[in-house]
Simulated assay, not measured.
Amino acid sequence: MDNLLKYKGIHPGIVLGRELKKRSLKQRPFALSINEHPQTLNTITKGKRNLNTALALKIENKLNLEEGTLAVLQTYYDIDKEKEKRETEAPKLSVLRRSLFWDTDINGIDWRKQYKAVIKRVFERGNESEKKEILRFYGSQKVDAVLHAIDRKAHSDIS
């Protein structure tokens, strides 16, 4: 297992594909030899499908790999994906001053649902680095749409 931990964070199917190639094993016959659908093995080796524990054990047994190796790689891969997802759930709070959100708990903001209020607040009261972070997080298209809507409302209130 120590040898395969160098692949930590890589989809286990990619590692499996390399292992099959290294051993000159074709995917279809290998899949059939472990009573698995060739299409299932193909989507796993392309990294498009997760490797469940039962299948990981069958593969490890057939290839004489240490038990749990592929399952552990799947877990590391899942952890990396979850971390990536969390990183995109909120802007970098280290860039945003807490005083910008003086009237609310910054950790309690639902950045996806309350995007209009966040964009408005930052572009009214934020500094350049805060504006850049909000642009990075939401994207210029979303920020522009919110700012244009605010401008249209301001112009209609004046008329």
Results as ranks from 00 to 15, higher is better:
2 D>E: 14
2 D>C: 03
4 L>P: 00
5 L>A: 08
7 Y>K: 02
8 K>A: 14
9 G>P: 09
10 I>T: 13
11 H>S: 03
11 H>F: 09
16 L>F: 06
18 R>Q: 10
22 K>E: 13
25 L>T: 03
27 Q>W: 02
29 P>K: 01
30 F>G: 10
30 F>L: 10
31 A>M: 08
31 A>C: 08
33 S>D: 06
33 S>H: 05
34 I>P: 05
38 P>V: 11
38 P>R: 10
38 P>D: 11
41 L>I: 13
42 N>S: 15
45 T>R: 04
46 K>L: 14
47 G>K: 09
50 N>T: 08
51 L>C: 08
52 N>V: 07
52 N>K: 10
52 N>G: 06
53 T>G: 02
53 T>I: 12
54 A>L: 12
55 L>R: 13
55 L>K: 07
55 L>S: 02
56 A>R: 08
58 K>W: 07
59 I>P: 11
65 L>D: 01
67 E>S: 15
68 G>P: 05
69 T>F: 02
69 T>L: 08
69 T>C: 08
70 L>Y: 04
71 A>I: 04
73 L>P: 00
74 Q>E: 12
74 Q>M: 14
76 Y>N: 11
76 Y>M: 11
76 Y>Q: 10
85 K>A: 13
86 R>P: 04
86 R>C: 12
86 R>L: 15
89 E>N: 11
96 L>I: 13
96 L>R: 02
100 L>G: 03
101 F>L: 04
103 D>H: 06
104 T>Q: 12
105 D>Q: 09
107 N>A: 13
114 Q>Y: 06
116 K>D: 01
116 K>P: 00
116 K>Q: 01
120 K>M: 04
125 R>W: 09
126 G>H: 10
127 N>L: 06
128 E>K: 15
128 E>H: 10
128 E>G: 03
129 S>T: 15
130 E>A: 02
131 K>N: 03
131 K>M: 06
132 K>Q: 15
132 K>A: 14
132 K>D: 14
136 R>N: 14
137 F>R: 00
138 Y>V: 06
139 G>S: 08
140 S>Q: 12
140 S>L: 07
142 K>G: 00
142 K>D: 06
143 V>P: 08
143 V>G: 06
145 A>L: 11
145 A>S: 13
146 V>N: 02
146 V>P: 00
148 H>M: 03
150 I>F: 01
151 D>I: 02
152 R>M: 04
152 R>F: 03
153 K>H: 04
154 A>I: 06
155 H>L: 14
157 D>N: 10
157 D>F: 06
